[in-house]
């Protein structure tokens, strides 16, 4: 851990906020992507059987 001096709080909180936001958008993106893909495959299987 480098010595951040008196600004440690600012630097660490900036990194924390940014990383949380980045992780959040990635997780949300992948989560929604998975859900949508599963839905589509379910519908495809169904229509494959019927049609």
């Amino acid at each position: 851990m480098p010595d951040l001096g008196k600004y440690a709080e600012a630097v660490l909180s900036a990194y924390a906020v940014s990383i949380v936001l980045l992780v959040a958008i990635v997780v949300l993106t992948v989560w929604r992507g998975r859900k949508v893909r599963a839905e589509m495959e379910a519908v495809e299987r169904r229509s494959g059987r019927n049609g």
Partner: peptide, 11 residues
């Protein structure tokens, strides 16, 4: 700027 310069890598 002291250590706050490190924020540049995100900003």
């Amino acid at each position: 700027q002291g250590s706050t310069v490190k924020i540049i890598y995100l900003h």
